[in-house]
């Protein structure tokens, strides 16, 4: 048939042509991709989705890493007791002059009611890590299995490019190791030895830090990140680093 007939005969999609479930899934992914999830806060997810390569089924079945380690902070619960900082220091031999995780104090004197909030920070193990891209010797790399951004200390030449590249001030030069050091989600000290949780997450008495597998629908991190009811955000999304550490309230 010619093109006129083709267009005339083109039917619109009828109701029931696409299952409601798929429509809901697709809508959810769309919301996630465009970053509008509950109240307009920005939510970044895995780079696979953002690249538009994954269909909705793929997103939910196949994260690029297994386990896809991630951390969620419930910042309203943080009281700056710094037990997490201490636990990290002890577990990972972090020297006095450096830190792998820190509690920032946010103060806004113009805010109504609450004017102070504590915000823990650490390496975000970004999905598009600027440090990994910039390192001349691949001394820092994103682990293919777990997604943790790790250090191969013996290769580090100490050029500090990764320190400058990181938007989150997550890295410092460790003189004892003669290399850059940063949070590795306690991989070397705990996870590789069979433990399931980071030292900081375990030490927190208030349930601020939730550590888990973002690709496991049964994990708490999955449930908190993949929901539309409460605002979930990442730090400095405009840098394009696609962090794997999320912040929420509640």
């Amino acid at each position: 048939m010619n093109w006129k007939e083709f267009f005339k005969n083109l039917k619109t999609e009828e109701e029931g042509c696409v299952p409601d479930e798929t429509k809901r899934e697709f809508l959810k992914i769309g919301l996630i991709i465009t970053g509008v999830a509950a109240g307009g806060s920005l939510l970044n997810v895995v780079s696979v989705v953002a690249e538009g390569l994954a269909t909705s089924e793929e997103l939910h079945k196949e994260y690029p890493y297994k386990p896809h380690y991630s951390m969620v902070f419930r910042v309203d619960r943080c009281i700056d007791c710094e037990r997490c900082v201490e636990a990290c220091r002890q577990t990972n031999n972090v020297p006095e002059y450096g830190w792998r995780t820190k509690i920032l104090e946010r103060v806004d004197t113009k805010a109504v009611d609450q004017q102070r909030q504590f915000m823990p920070i650490l390496c975000n193990h970004c999905n598009n890590p600027p440090c990994v891209r910039a390192c001349p010797t691949k001394a820092t790399y994103k682990d293919k299995q777990t997604g943790i951004v790790k250090m191969a200390s013996y290769k580090c030449i100490g050029c500090k490019t990764c320190m400058v590249a990181c938007p989150y001030d997550a890295r410092y030069f460790n003189e004892e190791k003669r290399a850059i050091d940063k949070c590795d989600f306690c991989w070397e000290s705990r996870l590789s030895k069979g433990m399931k949780i980071t030292a900081c997450a375990e030490a927190c008495p208030a349930g601020v830090r939730i550590f888990g597998d973002l690709s496991d629908p049964n994990s708490e991190v999955y449930k908190i990140v993949h929901q539309m009811g409460k605002a979930v955000w990442v730090l400095k999304p405009e840098t394009g680093a696609k962090p794997n550490v999320f912040y929420t309230i509640g």
């Binding site: 001349p136 050029c159 500090k160």
Partner: peptide
């Protein structure tokens, strides 16, 4: 005198190059 481990540069720039690194290309 700025790079912390200058003697490693020659070794790892050659053995473990990172083609996405501007520093590597520049060096």
């Amino acid at each position: 005198f700025d790079v912390e481990n200058p003697f490693r540069m020659a070794i790892w720039n050659a053995l473990s190059p990172n083609p996405t690194s501007n520093i590597w290309w520049m060096g």
